[in-house]
Nucleic acid binder design. Structure first.
Lengths: 178, 178
DNA sequence: TCCATCATGTAAACAGTTACATGATTGC
DNA sequence: GCAATCATGTAACTGTTTACATGATGGA
């Protein structure tokens, strides 16, 4: 079984073929989510692993002096990607997102009322800011015709909006409305 | 700096004081999210670590034959919990959730149209099922007056509903409406 | 008496991060 | 000539999981 990151890397290479490990790193580095850092220490060993497992193949671009390895999916690599993508999806528990804000609110009882309000306001400000930048990106993706990147961005937008709406519900229930 | 799990354990102990490591494990095991398993291998060394770091203190319940360690937060433990809870929150990028469904849709281009539909339908069914069980729990928490557990559950509900709404948008954009 | 649950722990493995290290290419 | 970016890699560490191992308690 491949890890989630390994499957995602297969997906990234598939979309950017032929694709250097460095480019894979940049995809993660520029991603709005910081879930995977795309650090050299994770990506280079990982693509090597996928190559020696027969899921990726590479050609080394020479002549221009620098040795850049460009990866492509093998047929086996492609069918691995497809079987990860296709149903059955992981079950409901693994499909649930983990929200660091939600876990804080779970334990927020320990705070005084004004501190609770401060947390909620800080969260709201940070989420709103993020929402703006992701919305920008999504509009660009739409304009560029990158449908699947656009749809993924739309998911992120809806998720953040849900967090924002929930924050107002939390305020209301805790009697912290402005 | 404590890890996210260490902070959450501090929160769990705080809410259930005096609290055995086993009970902490059960909180994770029964959680609808599978983000942390609460495995013995993570929890027992972790609480020991927090104890030797002066954030938890324990009394060993004897006399009834079994040796159960019951933990409480020390003053330092409590102030650590509070400083994790209080602003400033981690920035927007870390506040974003990572959604395994969203990353699959990002790469779904590789699938044929019927397969895409099958993925979306599978996701919808699994999320709906999860929604029902979390909604039950949230109602129980509300009835029991467990406000913060209730609010956290409400966050999960809103998050799943957002995923469900997004799934319909994905269908629409991809021309896969029933 | 037996099974589920409560209860504690360890060893090995695994995934990923941080920090370090090197060097070529492109544009100013 | 210099800085930013492209490009590849390793070593040490951290956090967590899986699998194993043990034993007491409470109820059918």
């Amino acid at each position: 079984m491949l890890s989630e990151l390994e499957n995602v890397v297969l997906g990234v290479v598939n979309v950017n073929q032929p694709c250097s490990a460095y480019r894979v790193r940049m995809v993660f580095a520029r991603s709005p989510s910081r879930h995977w850092s795309g650090s050299a220490g994770s990506i280079y060993p990982l693509v090597r692993r996928l190559e020696s497992g027969g899921l990726l193949q590479s050609v080394t671009r020479r002549g221009d002096g620098r040795a850049t390895r460009l990866y492509r999916l093998t047929r086996r690599g492609r069918s691995r990607l497809l079987s990860w993508l296709r149903p059955p999806l992981p079950d409901g528990g693994d499909l649930m997102t983990m929200d660091p804000l939600r876990v804080r609110v779970r334990f927020m009882e320990a705070l005084r009322s004004e501190e609770r309000l401060a947390v909620l306001e800080d969260a709201e400000a940070k989420l709103r800011e993020k929402l703006v930048s992701i919305d920008h990106e999504a509009r660009n993706d739409k304009r560029a015709g990158d449908t699947f990147r656009y749809l993924s961005g739309r998911g992120a937008i809806r998720s953040i909006r849900a967090q924002l709406d929930w924050l107002r519900e939390v305020r209301k229930v805790l009697g912290l409305e402005k």
